[in-house]
Amino acid sequence: MAETSDSMTFETMRGRLIGLAYRMLGSMADAEDAVQDTFVKWQDADRARIANPEAYLTTVCTNRCLDYLKAAHRKRVDYVGPWIPEPLQIEAGADPETDMERAQSLTTAFLLLLERLTPKERAAYLLREVFGKSYGEVSEILGLREASCRQLVSRAGRFVRSQSARATPTPEQQDIFLRAFLSAIETGSPDELADVLAASVQLRTDSGGKAAAISRVIEGQEVVNFITRAISRLWDREQIVELQINGMRGLAQLDDGKVVTAMTLGFTDEGKVDQIYIVRNPDKLERLAMPTRHDPSNGALWQ
């Protein structure tokens, strides 16, 4: 009975651990590995000495993610072209605008913003601001003094607020861009598209060297030219579907029913698109056809 109860305790926490690990690592595959490592350690632990299983599991998972981030930093040096987090198809609820506000911490733009924080800043910020842990809990999880954790969260918070990556576009603003984008690739005309792009717009493509892609970030007018001249030739309108990707509406290109390209967006506070993220690395698209449930009340992710 005790073993069954311990398994139930872990399963109750699994979604929250996956949600934390995915936000930390930007990869569902790595997140699942980190959570599996956490499960193994949980099985081997002396549960009689664990007063708070939730705190214990969160601590083990967080520190396993920090280990993964050290290894990931070395891997990124050799990564071919820009790196973009693995896209997830997040099930939409009844209220798209509310869903978007609740899923801000899953958007591609926000996950990439986290990449610019130190690993411990990232962990402290997520634990405090996304998962609602007290500073005392964050201190215990990271093994740091509470004052140090406050500094980490404060520094990370100032950086996040200074960026536009947490801008929340309305459903109408998302719809306007998607219509303009599809019109541009159908007609080759840049006029409607140019009106919805920020002057500083950037486009990056992640293929990991495993598919045809631009190996550098392009900006401004070059983005418009690329969409109207290159994407309009390469994307078959009949093979494009709209998906809810990382809490925001995006597009996927299919080939014989298989996702070969996914596009997500970043918006300015004024509702214009300033970031276009295109993922073509097949390793990152394998699970996009499988919807992921997000529980906004606790950040959990379930597939």
Rank of each mutant, 00 (worst) to 15 (best):
E3D: 13
S7C: 10
S7P: 10
F10K: 10
T12Y: 05
T12F: 05
R16Q: 11
G19S: 10
L20E: 08
M24Y: 05
G26V: 13
A31P: 14
A34M: 15
D37Q: 11
D37F: 05
D44E: 11
Y56C: 09
Y56T: 09
T59K: 11
T62H: 06
T62V: 09
D67L: 01
Y68A: 12
K70Y: 10
A71T: 11
A71F: 10
P82R: 02
I84R: 03
P85W: 04
P85T: 11
E86A: 08
P87L: 08
I90Y: 01
E91G: 08
P96S: 04
P96F: 04
P96L: 02
E97P: 03
R102P: 08
Q104K: 06
L106K: 03
T108Y: 02
A109D: 13
L111H: 06
L112F: 00
L113H: 03
T118H: 07
E121Y: 01
R122N: 06
A123E: 07
L126Y: 00
L126S: 14
R128N: 07
V130Q: 05
K133R: 10
G136R: 08
S139M: 05
G143V: 15
S148V: 03
R150V: 04
R150C: 03
R150T: 03
Q151N: 04
G157K: 09
R158M: 12
F159T: 11
S162R: 15
R166I: 01
P171M: 04
E172K: 00
D175S: 00
G188E: 09
S189M: 09
D191Q: 04
S200E: 12
V201A: 03
T205E: 14
D206H: 03
A213S: 10
R216F: 06
V217R: 12
V224S: 07
F226S: 14
T228V: 11
R229T: 14
I231F: 14
S232M: 14
S232R: 13
Q239V: 11
L243W: 05
Q244Y: 00
I245A: 05
I245W: 02
I245T: 08
N246V: 13
M248L: 12
L254A: 15
D255I: 03
K258E: 15
K258W: 03
T264P: 07
G266Q: 08
T268N: 06
E270M: 09
V273P: 01
Y277R: 12
N281S: 07
L285W: 03
L288R: 02
A289E: 02
A289Q: 06
R293V: 06
P296E: 03
S297R: 07
N298K: 07
A300W: 00
L301Y: 00
W302I: 13
Q303M: 12
Q303C: 13
